[in-house]
């Protein structure tokens, strides 16, 4: 029996204290690491989906699309503020704006830079405010898109991460949401067990590669054990940089950012 979600996101239910932030149920994000030498491709994604749909009681419940916008500070001439200039001015010049498909009334900003680690939650119209300020520009947008399933007490999202066109995607992601509980600590062993079952199933079906957990540094960003949508925002930010580093072989600045976001096991 799947209990009802108790607290859908309310545009006015956030802020003030940690307790009043948008409460959602714990989610765990992971991405697919292909076998050494192989690549992330559409047939691989199809295999992952096929394997997932093979679970007896799984039901497809819809589509999903999350959007992550990379914001960069600009100077008086409209040019991007450089890393060196930002560093000398102690400026958080690169940050992420995150819009979730299932929380359309809220928006998140994540600053993943040392000395500035912050997750801000706001009404969705803050995007208009930020564009009116004229201090920041969108440098690029990343999308996470796919299908959503229900399996017992779990809700699953599987999909791909891409920059401009869905066919040029850079990663496969899987999000697991556990519906009955809101404490991450209590959910952890349950999620771990479910993760193990999934991993085993993928292995049985000989899908090349395996899932790896996105372990975000929640505590560095001041997030507590009670799971909120801010935790999800941080996991997607971490995932983005994990995929980015994997793809480009790790630029120095990206590595600094991913170190801020990702907990290494």
């Amino acid at each position: 029996m799947v209990p009802k979600k108790t607290s859908p996101t309310s545009p006015v239910a956030i802020r003030g204290t940690q307790e009043s932030l948008t409460m959602v149920l714990p989610r765990r994000l992971m991405n697919w690491l292909p076998k050494y030498g192989s690549e992330i491709t559409n047939p691989l994604l199809a295999e992952v989906i096929l394997c997932l749909e093979g679970f007896g009681s799984i039901t497809k419940v819809g589509n999903w699309l999350h959007r992550i916008t990379i914001y960069r500070a600009i100077d008086r001439k409209g040019a991007y503020v450089s890393d060196a200039s930002a560093s000398s001015r102690n400026l958080g010049h690169k940050f992420l704006g995150i819009a979730f498909h299932d929380h359309p009334s809220v928006y998140f900003f994540v600053i993943p830079l040392p000395r500035h680690l912050t997750v801000l939650e706001a009404d969705a119209n803050i995007q208009i405010l930020m564009s009116q300020l004229g201090s920041f520009k969108h440098s690029s947008v990343r999308y996470f898109q796919g299908f959503q399933y229900r399996l017992g007490d779990f809700q699953l999202k599987v999909g791909k991460c891409f920059r401009s066109a869905p066919e040029n995607f850079r990663g496969i992601v899987l999000e697991i949401e556990y519906l009955p509980l809101s404490s991450m600590e209590v959910c952890r062993p349950i999620m771990k067990e479910f993760f193990g079952i999934l991993q085993e199933e993928f292995s049985k079906m000989s899908v090349p590669g395996h899932l790896i957990n996105i372990e975000a540094h929640f505590e560095r960003f001041g997030l507590q054990d009670y799971y909120t949508a801010q935790h999800t925002a941080l996991q997607y930010s971490a995932c983005l940089f994990q995929l980015g580093v994997a793809l480009r072989g790790g630029k120095k600045h990206d590595l600094i950012i991913s170190d801020c976001l990702l907990r290494r096991s």
Binding site: R15, N125, Q230
Partner: peptide, 10 residues
């Protein structure tokens, strides 16, 4: 005018 509710770390 644009107004937006924000978390307490704004």
């Amino acid at each position: 005018v644009v107004e937006s509710k924000v978390s307490n770390n704004a």
